[in-house]
């Protein structure tokens, strides 16, 4: 090779390197994927093609065979979930099982991705009402029987608002005088997040689950601002899913690997529930605090809870009509 050829080859290689896409993942995304329709407007053939493309890409990216399902909502089913706050011990097993089942991003020590958890468990103080202290104010000191709440118990948290601890790390749960309040998407019947989405990438399915078409989401975060329960999460970085931890059984509208710049949230484990299985959080709960079922079926666990137990709703005045309830025995 003479000098001229050598210089020429360097020039060509350099130009090729500059023109090629350095982002490997993005480079693998085909044009067809960029220009595909919204999932719910696709014909069956188009859906099959889109799913095939995704399966090929995911399998190549993660080095394992990934299946992407498209099971539709079942007829005569409206999903709902109820959580017993008296039973919950705050172990966060639901959180971890949800992360694993739904391919949520794990913490990356390199700083390229942050951890995403769809369920957040808030630790709260148990309200303790004492009849003896009823007439004392706060602060209560001998000789200074006055205070900001004479005759009341304003200084004792009676658990009305979620003013709790979000990042508790005890050696043992449950802790004394504490109760736990897991929060996730409430799958509202009247979802404010759906109303504000400018591209209709998020919508309510016939079985009552609010889903997101990740390929259609533009990452504007309007839905996050609209959600009164702060149940949506945003992928600021490229999600980090270790190869061995990837759940290869996925659903297009559910737990398939997401990309950077899209919003995600709980979807009652569509990939499981539409095949007649319980969501991962329900299965993982060691104390059986979570009940899941069909709200249209009077014999379902969740309907029985609604009929017989003391049920709470979060922020009822917003008229979102959530299908996620809290209850006490």
């Amino acid at each position: 090779m003479d000098r001229r050829e050598f210089m020429k080859s360097i020039g060509i290689t350099g130009a090729a390197a500059l023109l090629s896409n350095p982002d490997e993942l993005e480079a693998k995304t085909t044009w067809a994927e960029h220009f595909q329709k919204a999932f719910r407007l696709m014909t069956d053939d188009e859906k099959d093609q889109a799913i095939k493309r995704l399966e090929e890409r995911y399998s190549e990216e993660h080095g394992r065979e990934v299946k992407v399902g498209k099971e539709p909502a079942m007829d005569g089913v409206l999903f709902g979930q109820a959580l017993n706050i008296q039973k919950c011990i705050g172990c966060r097993r639901c959180v971890h099982s949800c992360v694993k089942e739904n391919n949520q991003s794990r913490h990356d020590p390199q700083g390229n991705a942050t951890e995403i958890e769809w369920i957040r468990v808030v630790k709260m103080e148990k309200g303790n009402f004492s009849a003896e202290d009823r007439d004392h104010g706060h602060p209560f000191k001998k000789g200074e029987e006055y205070g900001i709440s004479e005759g009341g118990h304003a200084h004792n948290n009676v658990g009305v608002v979620l003013e709790g601890e979000h990042y508790y790390e005890p050696k043992k749960v449950p802790e004394k005088d504490s109760f736990y309040f897991p929060i996730q998407c409430h799958q509202c019947e009247n979802p404010p997040c759906v109303k504000v989405c400018p591209v209709k990438a998020t919508y309510r399915e016939a079985d009552g689950v609010v889903v997101i078409d990740y390929n259609w989401c533009i990452g504007c975060r309007m839905c996050m601002g609209a959600c009164p329960y702060w149940a949506r999460r945003f992928n600021w970085g490229e999600p980090n899913i270790p190869k061995d931890d990837l759940n290869t059984d996925t659903h297009y509208l559910g737990n398939r690997p997401r990309m950077k710049g899209v919003v995600e949230k709980c979807h009652f484990c569509l990939q499981r529930t539409r095949k007649g299985r319980y969501p991962a959080c329900v299965e993982a709960c060691p104390v059986g605090a979570r009940k899941f079922g069909n709200l249209l079926d009077p014999e379902s666990e969740v309907r029985k809870v609604l009929e017989r137990k003391r049920v709470f709703r979060l922020k009822a005045d917003l008229n979102t009509f959530p299908k996620f309830f809290y209850y006490m025995d």
């Binding site: 009305v160 608002v161 979620l162 979000h166 003391r310 709470f312 922020k315």
Partner: peptide, 17 residues
């Protein structure tokens, strides 16, 4: 995002049905 979520949830009251 987390901090914003914390502050929003702190103001969420739950009510008995």
């Amino acid at each position: 995002d987390i901090a914003k979520g914390d502050s929003i949830l702190e103001n969420r009251a739950y009510v008995v049905m």
